[in-house]
């Protein structure tokens, strides 16, 4: 999981999804996750996944990277499939697709939305301590990632992480984590001092959302509503023959058109 790359994508992307406001994208994500939860049909889940790949194409970021980041839960989905194996390959496919589709939804959200915007949207429903904790965790994350990177490099250069000396490696790595923790505390203390000077009294003020609903917002919300409506419709009128397969064919055509369109625009 490359947190720094995700943050870079979220802050430097130039697509309609990047321009859309965080609440619209959160609504889109919630609708797609709800579709994943209610859908048990393999082809329909595959159609949703392919639709999301189209969305990933529209972000104008590296689609391969996005799909790779979102593929991480597949490892654990395989474990879950093995543990709950009942002899049905279709059920195994459904579990795998549920994991991949939900993860891809969340990854599309975070590669197009800076974390602070997501937290700002969640502020009305979260207690103050959790909201502020989310902000400060996000801030500390990049400091610690850099420190951990330096630590690993330093350990390797000084022979602290060597092959076949596992016990010594664990001891050195643990001491390194302890060092990162203490350094992090020191930085936190300084940061706390700065916050105090700037009038921090236990609540971090967040910018208000602009409140304007743009065409980009409409496109994001409409995509979510479309996916959810199709899932709900097929779940409700499950008797429609091969409906999931038809949805998959439509999603595949949209994907091809999206690739062609973005490639043409790129040229």
């Amino acid at each position: 999981m490359d947190v720094a790359l995700i943050d870079y994508y979220a802050n430097h992307g130039k697509s309609f999804l990047h321009s859309a406001a965080a609440p619209s994208k959160l609504l889109f994500s919630a609708l797609v996750i709800a579709s994943v939860v209610i859908t048990e049909e393999f082809y329909l889940l595959l159609a949703i996944y392919v639709s999301l790949v189209s969305m990933a194409v529209w972000t104008r970021l590296s689609v391969t990277k996005i799909i790779t980041i979102a593929a991480y839960p597949a490892i654990f989905a395989i474990l879950f499939v093995i543990v709950t194996w009942d002899g049905s390959l279709l059920r195994a496919g459904v579990i795998m697709l549920k994991a991949l589709t939900a993860a891809l939804t969340m990854v599309i959200l975070i590669v197009t939305t800076p974390y602070p915007d997501v937290f700002k949207t969640l502020k009305p429903i979260l207690p103050g301590i959790i909201h502020d904790g989310l902000y400060l965790t996000y801030r500390s994350l990049f400091v610690l990632l850099e420190m951990t990177d330096e630590l690993v490099k330093g350990l390797k250069v000084r022979g602290g992480l060597t092959k076949k000396k596992y016990l010594r490696n664990i001891a050195n790595f643990s001491s390194g984590i302890g060092l990162v923790l203490i350094k992090g505390f020191d930085i936190t203390e300084k940061y706390y001092g700065v916050m105090k000077v700037r009038g921090y009294t236990g609540k971090i003020a967040a910018d208000k959302n602009s409140g304007r609903f743009s065409t980009d917002d409409l496109r994001a919300v409409a995509s979510g509503i479309l996916i959810f409506s199709v899932s709900l419709g097929i779940k409700h009128y499950g008797s429609i023959d091969k409906s999931g397969l038809y949805a998959l064919i439509v999603a595949a055509i949209i994907l091809i058109l999206s690739i062609v369109y973005t490639a043409k625009e790129g040229n």
């Binding site: 965790t137 996000y138 500390s140 610690l144 992090g184 505390f185 916050m195 236990g202």
Partner: peptide, 17 residues
């Protein structure tokens, strides 16, 4: 809490890393 919230931030970040 004004002192504790930054600590939550650093420990949470370490867990994520």
């Amino acid at each position: 809490l004004t002192r504790k919230i930054p600590l939550i931030g650093i420990i949470s970040a370490l867990m994520i890393v």
